[in-house]
């Protein structure tokens, strides 16, 4: 396939993904808006008012970047994992596998689809947050880069989960037992300075620590980890996830017999 044909194939997958999550917007877009509103009310307004300042900001200001990032992570992940596993389950993934479209384009189609849902939900949650706090952005460039890189990383992770999943249970195990704890332990609700040294060091293995702090730096201008280190870690995790996703597609593991 020439470049133009590959682009057409990519846009076909991408458009299909957008149509899918917009068609079921009550399952894909609405829950994040409601959940995050509850977080803003409970953690930001009710409990936050008693906590006081954190990192030099009101608790509400402190948690908003983390909560937006939480929505991006869960949505970009769950979009790809549910869509790609759904196509495996229904057999419609064969439509792609029998066609001449390259594995790279297949992966990019699904990943960019997941990224787009992450971005759309990020916009929705950000708009909701404006009802609770005045959001001023420290660096738009850093915010955009971190959002794109993070949603790409977790869309790739969702793809890997979907390839390995054999049942619908398998696509909820990772988000429930791995992703959610990593998010909660990733510094969304607290500063890493509050942790004992041992647990602060353990936290450095958690990729969510870097994405939450990099994003918080973009919004508030403060971070528990250095920005170059955060970017470096996100790039490393993303590269590994991309390489492994391509390996799965090229080897045909769990996709071809």
């Amino acid at each position: 396939m020439n470049l133009r044909e590959q682009y057409v194939a990519f846009m076909t997958i991408f458009r299909k993904e957008i149509k899918r999550y917009l068609r079921i917007w009550t399952q894909t877009l609405l829950p994040s808006a409601i959940t995050m509103s509850l977080y803003f009310v409970i953690f930001g307004t009710l409990i936050g008012s008693r906590i006081g300042e954190m990192g030099g900001f009101s608790y509400m200001e402190f948690v908003v970047p983390g909560l937006i990032m939480m929505a991006i992570v869960t949505n970009s992940y769950s979009n790809v994992v549910s869509s790609f596993f759904g196509s495996k389950f229904s057999g419609s993934v064969e439509e792609l596998l029998v066609s001449p479209v390259s594995n790279f384009v297949i992966l990019m189609g699904y990943v960019v689809g997941g990224v787009s849902r992450g971005l759309l939900v990020a916009v929705v949650v950000t708009l909701v947050s404006l009802f609770f706090t005045d959001l001023s952005i420290h660096s738009y460039l850093i915010v955009v880069i971190v959002v794109l890189m993070t949603s790409t990383l977790f869309a790739l992770a969702g793809f890997i989960n979907a390839v390995y999943a054999n049942s619908f249970d398998d696509i909820s195990i990772i988000p429930t037992f791995v992703l959610t704890p990593l998010i909660y332990l990733g510094g969304v609700f607290y500063s890493m300075d509050m942790l004992p040294e041992f647990w602060a060091n353990v936290s450095k293995l958690n990729p969510l620590v870097y994405v939450v702090n990099a994003f918080r730096y973009g919004v508030l201008g403060v971070s528990d980890v250095s920005l170059p280190v955060a970017f470096g870690m996100i790039v490393i995790f993303t590269t590994l996830a991309f390489a492994y996703s391509m390996h799965l597609l090229n080897s045909g593991k769990r996709l071809r017999q």
């Binding site: 396939m1 133009r4 044909e5 590959q6 057409v8 846009m11 439509e95 001449p100």
Partner: peptide, 15 residues
Amino acid sequence: LDIVINQAGYYGLSP
């Protein structure tokens, strides 16, 4: 219709 059009897209046919 979408199923058939999408399949054409996977082969690089213009919309």
